[in-house]
């Protein structure tokens, strides 16, 4: 057996024929991939089906294309159109992006490049908050924001991001800044840069890949967030897309699956388009830091 495998290894190295196993494996993985995506593909086509077809016919493609689902769904939830809900979601998500970029890059810079007292315990605290379950802070936070009259405003959804609450991104940027050669700092300092100039002129431009990753994930997390908007937003004018979808489900139940699927499909487009554009950053971001999607 040993000589056989050794010979086989030598033979493959020399001729490099396409091994059967590679073909088989690729086919199996393709089938698996199709299976994984099938629910989404089905959702897409179901969003063009009349309601009776969704439940009665097991065919993937619609027999009658019901484009009206989209028009109907657009106006069907709450007091506003879905256009408004998408707008709301995007405003909150973009503000979250800005908040995270500012607060997390500042903190990360300090943790890597500055020397100060209690650095180690503060760093440990920061790491602990990364894994802290939100449940344990959400109730007093709610009480606090409630007492400030911030229920039914976007402040509770946006403001925490300006204070580095999503510490995962600080961690991500710390990892990245550690990889930036210190010679650059030293040179900048010799030229008389203070820490702010060092941060602004040297580190920040080099930090761009980590900033991009942070921006993408901030957007996705905020866009997908259901829990916080559910707690803080009760007026349907202010609803985000997930809240609007849930309202749609509650108000029309099982009777309007076509339009509901139409809006569900639309709601999935922003993340999927972002993924198509920023695939590499997203995959690298998960691989390097275990960011959840």
């Amino acid at each position: 057996m040993t000589t056989n495998t050794r010979l086989a290894a030598v033979a493959t190295r020399r001729r490099r024929p396409v091994p059967i196993s590679k073909i088989v494996l690729t086919v199996v993985i393709s089938v698996g991939a199709f299976g994984m995506l099938y629910p989404l593909i089905w959702l897409l086509f179901a969003s063009f089906k009349p309601n009776n077809e969704i439940f009665a016919v097991s065919q993937l493609l619609p027999q009658i294309w019901e484009f009206g689902n989209y028009a109907e769904g657009w106006f069907a939830a709450g007091t506003q159109t879905f256009g408004r809900y998408f707008g709301n979601s995007v405003v909150i998500a973009l503000a979250s992006v800005v908040g995270n970029l500012i607060s997390c890059s500042l903190a990360a810079f300090a943790f890597v490049r500055l020397k100060f007292r209690f650095k180690k315990p503060l760093f440990a605290l920061m790491l602990m908050t990364v894994m802290l379950p939100a449940q344990v802070t959400i109730i007093p936070q709610f009480i606090l924001f409630h007492s400030w009259g911030w229920v039914n405003t976007y402040w509770p959804l946006i403001l925490p991001k300006f204070f580095g609450v999503e510490a995962f991104f600080i961690f991500l940027m710390i990892q990245f800044i550690r990889g930036i050669p210190r010679d650059l700092d030293d040179a900048a300092q010799l030229d008389g840069c203070n820490p702010w100039q060092l941060f602004w002129r040297i580190i920040l431009p080099l930090l761009r890949p980590a900033l991009v990753t942070t921006a993408i994930f901030s957007f996705l997390w905020s866009y997908n967030d259901f829990f916080s908007p559910l707690i803080y937003l009760t007026e349907s004018d202010l609803f985000t897309v997930p809240l609007a979808l849930r309202q749609f489900l509650d108000s029309s139940g099982e009777s309007a699956f076509g339009p509901m699927f139409a809006m569900s499909t639309l709601s999935l487009l922003p993340p999927i388009i972002m993924f198509a554009i920023f695939q590499r950053q997203i995959v690298d971001g998960i691989a390097t830091s275990g960011l959840k999607g």
Partner: peptide, 11 residues
Amino acid sequence: YIPSLVGTSVA
């Protein structure tokens, strides 16, 4: 990866 991207959504 796509299911991880969208899996937790309301949709």
